[in-house]
Each structure stands twice: as structure tokens, then as C-alpha cells.
């Protein structure tokens, strides 16, 4: 008897894994679909080019007391904001709209479909970062003199930190999207706070220019720490003077990002289970009605 149960649970693990693979292919396909969609392309280009133009126009502006130009200093913080913003707001909006349009219910109707759907979101949102990263980093590398001070180690650090940042942000975004009932809630609880945090996290000017308590708030959240880690990777050692405490704190950065990731991953499965349990045709229909009233 116990062997049958074991065999069954082994079977089920295999099938769960199969759904993860199906979901990964789903994410790839959705990414390809977004690349053939003019709206998505213009979104990438508009923001990407906007950032590059800003950096280019300020390429001779020097930030004291580090003696670095704006593109050199700000690129790390901009990448951090992009990753946290995309990682939180991207899946949150996707989930809340796809609850509303019935995509999630279709996933629920298939065996292990929600697992596949969430995997698909993780893959899609992670890949969705690439066009912006490419559009921003490659041109900036040409006019920001000496962008990378640590060479290969630095680039490896950048890649690893970006992945860690994604791991911190994506579960939070998924939790937010699962809890939110309508897109405006994602704006209130996701979009605006991330904008606010990027303003106080030392992205465009050193955080040491902010008041002490603001520095304290910024240090609770991932944007400052991801930016800090990336600045460590990009900038020379003595640029640490403008960081909080005047030194590089790479371990703390990894610790805070890891803690956010762990918190998100602890919450996400519970919240997703609750969300999936509540999905039904009449729930989708009710939201559709509500949406039509909202749009008047």
C-alpha cells in the first residue's frame, strides 16, 4: 500500500515538473509575442531612449565629492530601479489584468495549470527586462568614460546582482497581483511606492545628500541595496564615500535582497493558492461587470 502511495507521489512530482516546463515555454512564447507587438516595442524604446538621452546630455556633469560623471554614477541606480520596478509592477499588473480577462481561470482548468502560469510569468517578466537593459547599457557604455572599473569580475557581479534583485522583486510583484482586485490597487500599492523609493534611494544623486531618516527608510527596501551593489560593481573603491556609512556593504546588500526574496517566496505560494481557490467563472464575470461600470 505504502509503495503505491510513494509511486503516486513520485508520479505527481514528475507531472508538477512537467507543468513547470510547459510554463517556461509559455513564458518564452509570451516574450516572443511581446516582441512582435508594436505597443510593447514602443514602450521599451520610449523609456530606454529617454534614459539614454538624459544620461547623454549630462555626460560631462560631475557629481561631487566622488568625481564621477552622471552616467557613470547613475547607471547602477537606474538599472536597480528598472529591475525592481519591472519585477514588482510587471507581474502585479499582469496578474490583476489576467485574473480579470479569464487567463488565470483557463490555467486553473488545466492540470497543474496555475503552476505553469506562474512559471510563465517569472520567465516572461525576467526576459522582459532584457530589451531595456540592452537599450540602456550598450549606448551608455560608449559615452560614459570608464563605466566599469572592475572588469570581468564587475560584469559578473552585475549579472549576479541583477538576478538577485529579480529574485527579490518578482515574488513581491506576484503577491501584489494575487491580492489586488483591480489595476488601480497595483498603481497605489506597487507603482507609486516604487517610484517614491527610487527617488529617495540615491539613484540620480548620492543618498548621503538626503536626511538621515530618509536614508533609514531607503535602507529597508531593495532599490537602495541593489543600486549599492551595482555601484560597488561598476565604480572604483573610493566612490564608497557617498554611500551610507561611507563604505561598501556588499554582504548587507546580498542579505537584504535575499531577505526580501525569502519573504516573497514564503508568501507567494500561500497567496497564490488562496487566489486560485477563489477563481471561478462567476468571479471572472463579476469582475468583468465591475470593470465595465468603472469604465462607465
Amino acid at each position: 500500500m505504502s509503495t503505491t502511495t510513494e509511486a503516486q507521489s513520485h508520479d505527481d512530482r514528475g507531472r508538477g515538473l512537467h507543468a513547470v516546463k510547459v510554463g517556461a515555454r509559455r513564458g518564452l512564447r509570451e516574450f516572443r509575442i511581446s516582441l512582435r507587438n508594436p505597443e510593447d516595442i514602443s514602450f521599451y524604446v520610449f523609456w530606454g531612449v529617454g534614459i539614454v538621452v538624459y544620461l547623454f546630455l549630462n555626460r560631462r556633469e560631475v557629481i561631487e565629492p566622488v568625481g564621477l560623471t552622471v552616467p557613470q554614477f547613475a547607471l547602477a541606480g537606474i538599472l536597480a530601479t528598472m529591475v525592481v520596478f519591472g519585477g514588482v509592477v510587471g507581474p502585479a499588473f499582469a496578474l490583476v489584468t489576467e485574473k480579470e480577462d479569464g487567463t488565470l481561470l483557463r490555467a486553473k482548468a488545466a492540470p497543474h495549470g496555475i503552476r505553469g502560469y506562474v512559471t510563465g510569468q517569472v520567465v516572461l517578466q525576467s526576459l522582459g527586462m532584457l530589451p531595456m537593459l540592452v537599450i540602456v547599457v550598450i549606448p551608455t557604455a560608449f559615452f560614459a568614460d570608464r563605466l566599469m572599473h572592475r572588469g570581468a569580475v564587475g560584469w559578473f557581479g552585475v549579472a549576479a546582482l541583477l538576478l538577485l534583485g529579480l529574485a527579490a522583486a518578482l515574488p513581491l510583484g506576484i503577491v501584489m497581483g494575487a491580492v489586488a482586485r483591480k489595476p488601480s490597487q497595483v498603481t497605489t500599492w506597487g507603482l507609486l511606492p516604487v517610484f517614491g523609493l527610487s527617488a529617495i534611494s540615491g539613484v540620480f544623486f548620492p543618498i548621503s545628500a538626503m536626511w538621515g531618516w530618509v536614508q533609514g527608510v531607503a535602507q529597508v527596501f531593495p532599490i537602495y541595496w541593489l543600486g549599492h551593489g551595482l555601484r560597488w560593481a561598476f565604480l572604483p573603491d573610493d566612490a564608497a564615500v557617498v554611500e551610507v556609512g561611507g563604505e561598501w556593504r556588499l554582504l548587507e546588500a546580498i542579505g537584504v535582497l535575499g531577505a526580501w526574496g525569502a519573504l516573497g517566496m514564503l508568501l507567494a505560494p500561500r497567496v497564490l493558492r488562496r487566489m486560485a481557490r477563489r477563481e471561478s467563472g462567476s468571479a471572472v464575470e463579476a469582475r468583468r461587470q465591475e470593470r465595465m461600470q468603472r469604465l462607465g
Binding site: 480577462d101 479569464g102 487567463t103 481561470l105 492540470p111 497543474h112 467563472g281
Partner: peptide, 19 residues
């Protein structure tokens, strides 16, 4: 989930998977 695989559901049309 194995049970789920034996069930077919024709849902109503919404606006999912438009692209």
C-alpha cells in the same frame, strides 16, 4: 491534479490570450 486532467470545461469567452 490527476482528477483535473479528466475534466473538460468549456468556459465562457472573455478577453484572455488575445495576442
Amino acid at each position: 491534479e490527476e482528477w483535473r486532467a479528466g475534466i473538460g470545461i468549456v468556459l465562457q469567452s472573455w478577453r484572455d490570450h488575445r495576442r
